[in-house]
């Protein structure tokens, strides 16, 4: 049916049917509406909940109002076209830049620590020498099942001076101005390391061990095999996990929002998305919130697009 044979050799489940042809000849693949019908629900949802909202955001971002009202709902009474004013305001907004700087520091910390740990754990799990591997694997993946809000509450209480067992060992204010970013990054690393480890570990398990045998016979150590053979094989999976992590990090919202009630070191505009939320729903300035959203989207896209291209080229050989 497919234009090309499926890129992945599926396990042969059935006796080979009589015709020995490997693929359907072109003449049998007549144009049909079937794939479009199968894709219709997804495309409809895409249109309603992605395309239209994005279009609406772009529309709002070039509008403005002179009288500050609630602005919610259909009330477009005093709405005017303002061109790129909202964008210039967003780009010149020092508060937003401060937010970007915080998220940049936070993001680099999270990405570096989380992905390094995930790769290390995956390689160790795959190395055959480890005891209690199953227990460790399940335990490290467990935080994935913990909602971000719950994770933030858990760690938040562990950071609180009155409850913290950490504070009994380490005399630092974990929610202070200097440390709150590290504390927050810790929550994200804790929640994400297991998922990324699992993606990488699954990738390693799919590699036939014959790949490593030649190297072993040649006397390569496990560390050499890990660095020279396994890491290159993992590259597409590493890129994939990096893209998903970048996207999640740029959008950080839940952790700082849920941590705020416990400390006064997190402002209501700590991350760019928190500022968007405040503009839209607290101060009611939808137009500047829309423009800021678009700026965030563009930055996300620029950061991820290169990665995604590589992922598409390397991971979906059939595409």
């Amino acid at each position: 049916m497919s234009a090309r044979p499926a890129a992945l050799s599926a396990p042969e489940r059935l006796p080979e049917p009589a015709p020995r042809r490997r693929r359907a000849p072109a003449r049998e693949r007549r144009a049909t509406a079937a794939p479009y019908l199968f894709l219709a629900p997804a495309m409809l949802l895409f249109t309603l909940f992605l395309a239209v909202p994005i279009g609406y955001t772009v529309y709002l971002s070039v509008r403005g109002t002179k009288v500050s009202g609630l602005g919610l709902g259909k009330g477009a009474r005093r709405e005017i076209f303002t061109g790129l004013d909202n964008y210039t305001a967003a780009i010149g907004d020092g508060e937003l830049w401060a937010g970007w700087l915080r998220v940049l520091g936070y993001g680099l910390l999270v990405l570096a620590v989380m992905l390094t740990l995930a790769l290390l754990f995956a390689l160790l799990l795959d190395s055959a020498r480890v005891r209690l591997a199953r227990f460790s694997r399940v335990a490290i993946f467990l935080p994935y099942a913990v909602p971000g809000v719950a994770a933030t509450l858990l760690w938040g209480f562990l950071y609180l001076p009155s409850l913290s067992p950490i504070r009994q060992v380490l005399d630092v204010d974990l929610l202070g101005t200097g440390t709150v970013m590290v504390s927050m990054a810790n929550i994200a690393v804790w929640g994400g390391v297991g998922f990324n480890m699992l993606v990488l570990y699954t990738a390693l398990r799919a590699v036939p061990s014959s790949y490593y045998e030649a190297a072993r016979i040649d006397g390569a150590s496990e560390v050499q095999i890990a660095l020279r053979i396994k890491v290159p094989i993992l590259l597409p999976a590493i890129i994939l996990t990096t893209v998903f992590s970048i996207i999640a990090t740029v959008q950080v919202f839940t952790e700082p929002t849920a941590l705020r009630p416990l400390t006064n070191t997190i402002s209501s505009t700590w991350s760019p998305l928190m500022k968007v939320y405040r503009d839209a729903f607290v101060t009611g300035d939808l137009y500047s919130a829309a423009a800021t959203s678009i700026v965030i989207a563009v930055i996300s896209l620029v950061l991820s697009f290169g990665f995604l291209r590589v992922v598409r080229d390397r991971a979906y050989g059939e595409g």
Partner: peptide
């Protein structure tokens, strides 16, 4: 997957 949730959430709310 690349579209930040907030870009969608605000207009989704309005719609």
């Amino acid at each position: 997957v690349l579209v930040p949730a907030v870009v969608l959430a605000i207009p989704q709310y309005l719609l």
